[in-house]
């Protein structure tokens, strides 16, 4: 029973990692951009949530109403102002520019909020739990997991059922010919980044309710998200959820054996899967 509990907790933790990963997966899918600053943007989302809750006295979940559009707007401006200029055959410019961005965001947060760990207060939600079949499961992890499923289902719907998703896929397939359909690539990429940072805002707030955070933890969140993407298989959003769950379970099992082993176990699971299945467990099969 104890081990069942570990697996359940790990699975729910995987929901958070899938949220970290979803934005990363989306922008890679649309414009082949790997955003090194992604983790710092998650942390930025958490801090924006913190500011909104402390200034307006809102519940963190209600803060989403403000933080998601702000982050999305920031994403659009960031993409059109800076990142669009880096896209091309050479992988160096996007990598190095997003790396610089990561350092800028991290240190701006440090300057604004100091290095002290912060946490958002979600009231009764933090301690509430539901019990079933002898297992007690926290409501917050459950809510996070549900959010991850909802976010991925929504992204999936946008991608495969809407004009915007069609434009994303067409631009990703062949950016040049997509322009002949009247699609302005720069605008489409801006929208993709806006959507990705909207999701990132959700990830940041869920993170900020669950654990304490400080400006330096972005790199770690980027790595978790990245591992979930690679484990699940590039370009497969549901695979990313599965990847997050595998990572989460590996971490809770590691932590169960020895608290110092939590992160290491997750990384090792990732490396083992990379060694055995370099394309991930559920690679997307193109027609």
């Amino acid at each position: 029973m104890e081990w069942v509990n570990v697996v359940v907790q790990g699975t729910l933790l995987g929901g958070l990692y899938a949220l970290f990963a979803a934005g990363l997966s989306l922008i890679f899918g649309v414009m082949r951009l790997v955003n090194i600053a992604h983790g710092d943007l998650i942390v930025l989302g958490a801090y924006l949530g913190l500011s909104v809750t402390t200034v307006l006295g809102l519940h963190p979940l209600l803060a989403l109403i403000l933080v998601v559009p702000v982050m999305a707007g920031f994403g659009y401006v960031l993409q059109r102002g800076i990142l669009n200029q880096t896209l091309g055959k050479d992988i160096l410019p996007p990598l190095l520019v997003t790396f610089g961005l990561s350092v800028i965001i991290q240190n701006t947060l440090l300057e604004t909020y100091s290095a002290d760990p912060q946490k958002m207060n979600a009231g009764a939600l933090e301690t509430a739990s539901v019990s079933a079949a002898g297992l007690s499961v926290g409501l917050l992890p459950l809510l996070t997991f549900g959010t991850a499923i909802a976010v991925i289902a929504t992204l999936q719907w946008i991608f495969y059922r809407t004009a915007l998703g069609r434009a994303f896929r067409a631009t990703s397939d062949n950016p040049e010919i997509a322009q002949l359909m009247g699609l302005n690539r720069r605008h489409i990429f801006g929208l993709a980044m806006a959507l990705a940072l909207g999701v990132t805002a959700i990830a940041g707030i869920m993170l900020g309710i669950r654990t304490s955070f400080d400006p330096s933890i972005g790199g770690g969140r980027l790595i978790f998200g990245f591992e979930a993407v690679i484990i699940g298989g590039l370009g497969n959003l549901w695979g990313t959820l599965a990847g997050g769950v595998i990572l989460g379970v590996a971490q809770t099992i590691g932590a169960k054996i020895d608290p110092g082993w939590q992160l290491l176990a997750g990384h090792l699971a990732f490396l083992v899967i990379l060694a055995l299945r370099p394309n991930g467990l559920f690679p997307r099969i193109d027609g």
Binding site: R166, R169, A170, S172, D173, N174, E176, I177, A178, Q179, L180, M181, G182, L183, N184, R185, D286, G287
Partner: peptide
């Protein structure tokens, strides 16, 4: 830009067809 030209009513059937494979 190419998308602005397209919006003005010039369409191209490109060499090698160049369909969008994921559509």
């Amino acid at each position: 830009r190419a998308d602005e030209v397209a919006a003005r009513g010039i369409a191209l059937v490109p060499e090698g067809r160049q369909l969008f494979p994921s559509l």
